[in-house]
């Protein structure tokens, strides 16, 4: 090391290292973009051909799924997915919002912390465990209902809805709670000062003010329910027929793990095709989610 160090030379060597690191971090950041690009390309590339071969309308609107016979209609699966998701949201959304109200506004002392810990745990339980519990605990109850209705005992749409609604509950609770907490206190003060009771204040002012956050939670819940595969596979009964509450159903997601192992040729391609349809569904839900968040953000600004 010389006494008089040249500032120019050190700066250059530092700058080189800086440039290398900067480029390396940029590449890391681009990994997510590249992944999305690859996933999109390969979903289309693998799922597109079968839809072209079968014909898009015949594929989407066909009512018969019989791969051995060359019939690849997935309408029953699309409808079952929609019904199961709608049913799960119908149960989980009001429940989740009310529990979030309890957590954010009504629960005293340390109770919210304890309940939140349990809800986090619920979110962490693997989906196969939900499937197992659904098959062992829930299915026998529904069997009784089916016997009473004169139907054969089997997995059912009702079982799928029940399991899904529990699985998406933590998402809806957590997102709604955050949204409710973010409502400015001055709105609530004003409502109370006008002589609202605590509940009137919450239901007439706080929840409406938090609606975009709650909608975002709902969109996340929809995404999770539409995409869930294993738990549903274990309870839904998996018959590719048009959905009815107490009859077995097969969702978009469940065909893939069910038939994956023994499918080949056009049959395998049809499973890729189902994957592509599911992918499009998810992208639409994602777009709705970011539209909700953007609108909510603009509103708060």
């Amino acid at each position: 090391m010389t006494e008089k160090q040249s500032i120019i030379s050190t700066r250059r060597s530092k700058l080189t290292l800086e440039a290398v690191m900067s480029a390396a971090f940029l590449l890391c950041g681009l990994a997510a973009v590249v992944s999305v690009l690859f996933i999109s390309v390969y979903m289309v590339a693998s799922g597109g051909p079968v839809i072209a071969k079968v014909g898009i309308l015949k594929f989407l609107l066909g009512r018969v799924w019989n791969p051995g016979n060359g019939q690849f209609g997935i309408l029953p699966m699309i409808l079952s997915s929609i019904f199961a998701t709608a049913g799960a949201i119908l149960i989980a959304l009001p429940t989740g919002v009310l529990v979030a109200v309890f957590l954010s506004k009504l629960a005293p002392g340390k109770l919210p912390g304890a309940l939140r810990a349990l809800i986090d745990l619920l979110a962490g339980i693997p989906s196969v465990v939900y499937g197992l519990l659904g098959a062992i605990l829930l299915a026998p109850l529904i069997f009784k209902l089916q016997t009473w209705a004169g139907l054969p005992q089997s997995g059912s749409l009702l079982a799928a809805i029940s399991v899904l609604s529990i699985m998406i509950l933590p998402t809806i609770i957590t997102v709604s709670e955050t949204a409710l907490r973010a409502v400015p206190k001055q709105y609530e003060d004003a409502a109370l000062a006008l002589g609202s009771t605590r509940l009137q204040c919450i239901f007439r002012v706080t929840i409406p003010a938090a609606k975009s956050g709650i909608a975002a939670g709902m969109a996340l819940g929809v995404g999770r329910a539409v995409g869930e595969a294993m738990a549903v596979t274990m309870v839904a009964g998996n018959a590719a027929i048009l959905p009815e509450l107490l009859k077995p159903v097969r969702l978009l997601t469940t065909s893939i793990p069910l038939e994956w192992a023994y499918s080949s040729g056009l049959h395998r391609e049809a499973l890729y095709g189902i994957g592509l349809v599911l992918f499009v569904f998810i992208m639409i839900i994602n777009a709705a989610l970011s539209a909700i968040l953007k609108k909510g953000g603009a509103h708060n600004a």
Partner: peptide, 8 residues
């Protein structure tokens, strides 16, 4: 109140 707080 101190600052206007109409509901949204």
């Amino acid at each position: 109140f101190q600052s206007p707080n109409p509901f949204p």
